[in-house]
């Protein structure tokens, strides 16, 4: 399974190789910063799920792209984070969103610890099916334990404050979401992306990639495969929990569809769409998914049909996703290549 590569060349060579990507990243950051000044609130509200899913996918790609474990039940941890926001704001009356994020991360880690310990004993389809099974178990729990979870109606997300300074006043929810909350969520994504960048370039990240490539060889080099997989699973769940917590205030209501298996499928789709072979691929996947879904839904009601066709095309024609396509050097058309090719007199 090919996965993200991490350059380990000399710092100078690395800087040269990364320069175009750094420019694109800088432009993207600039666009995010100025968007509230030039973009309509409608599109800004579409950016909020992008920030939330961006965090979730950074974690999911640690598992898929760096460790080689494909989870089909990752929405479980996203749901844990989202429900934590709801429970924290409505029942525990916690207002500080920073405390809520920490709580969501902690709850996701606690839930992930036993599930991960069991799942990482298996690989490939067995791992995928186990994660799917746990996801559906949690879905059933949310549906059936109405008194605790609100059943299929779910729970609402109550008022909260950002940094103890900003709160949504009544009637100003959209302004709050597209203003303070927008920058807050973008900052959380940026910070967690930096943390993940550091993790994948650490000795731990190297061990994960060795496990993805060849677990047997990694074990003979003294790498504890199961332990590393478990840590990756936990980290991935923590990211999903925080992402889910960011998603809660956006929807204002959390319900069991958040953890349904199709939502897990959407997460995998986003990773594949952007490309799990690159660090930023899943972020691009989340962005394209959200805006493409919005555009297609406004045109045809059968958006899943269109997405299915896109997914099939990606798997067949662009297995490295959009990021893989973008990073390819432009190639000359075949006729131009033939014209440039050396003639028989040059051939050996």
């Amino acid at each position: 399974m090919a996965g993200p590569a991490v350059a380990q060349t000399s710092p100078r060579a690395g800087a040269r190789a990364f320069a175009p990507g750094a420019w694109v990243l800088a432009l993207a950051v600039l666009a995010v910063l100025v968007a509230p000044l030039v973009v309509s609130p409608y599109y800004l509200t579409k950016m909020l799920p992008f920030f939330a899913y961006g965090v979730v996918l950074l974690g999911l790609n640690l598992l898929v792209g760096y460790t080689g474990l494909l989870s089909f039940g990752h929405a479980l941890f996203l749901g844990v984070g989202a429900y934590t926001v709801s429970v924290a704001t409505t029942r525990l009356e916690i207002r500080s969103f920073e405390v809520i994020l920490l709580l969501a991360a902690l709850t996701a880690a606690i839930v992930a610890a036993p599930i991960g310990a069991l799942c990482v004993r298996y690989v490939k389809i067995y791992f995928g099916m186990l994660t799917l099974a746990f996801g559906m178990l949690f879905y059933s729990f949310l549906i059936k334990f109405y008194a605790v979870t609100g059943g299929d109606q779910g729970l609402r997300v109550a008022q909260h404050s950002l940094l103890g300074l900003f709160e949504a006043r009544s009637g100003e929810r959209v302004r709050f979401l597209t203003g303070q909350f927008y920058y807050y969520a973008a900052a959380v994504l940026a910070i967690l992306a930096l943390v993940m960048w550091r993790i994948v370039r650490s000795p731990f990240g190297l061990c994960l990639r060795s496990i993805r490539d060849n677990p047997e060889k990694a074990e003979y080099l003294g790498v504890s495969v199961r332990r590393h997989r478990w840590y990756a699973f936990m980290l991935s769940a923590v990211y999903a929990g925080i992402g889910g917590a960011l998603l809660g205030p956006v929807t204002g209501q959390v319900d069991p569809t958040l953890v349904y298996w199709t939502h897990s499928g959407n997460l995998v789709f986003m990773v594949l769409l952007g490309g799990f072979t690159s660090f930023f691929g899943p972020l691009l996947g989340a962005f394209v998914f959200i805006f493409l879904q919005d555009q297609i839904m406004s045109v045809v009601p059968y958006w899943r049909l269109v997405f299915g066709a896109i997914l099939a095309a990606i798997v067949i024609f662009a297995p490295t996703g959009l990021m893989g396509l973008l990073s390819q050097r432009p190639t000359l058309p075949r006729w131009a290549v033939l014209r440039q090719a050396p003639g028989p007199e040059h051939a050996n």
Binding site: I199, S202, F204, S224
Partner: peptide
């Protein structure tokens, strides 16, 4: 014994 160091820059 550095295989679990998460924030240590390998480079």
């Amino acid at each position: 014994g550095r295989g679990t160091r998460l924030f240590h820059a390998l480079a």
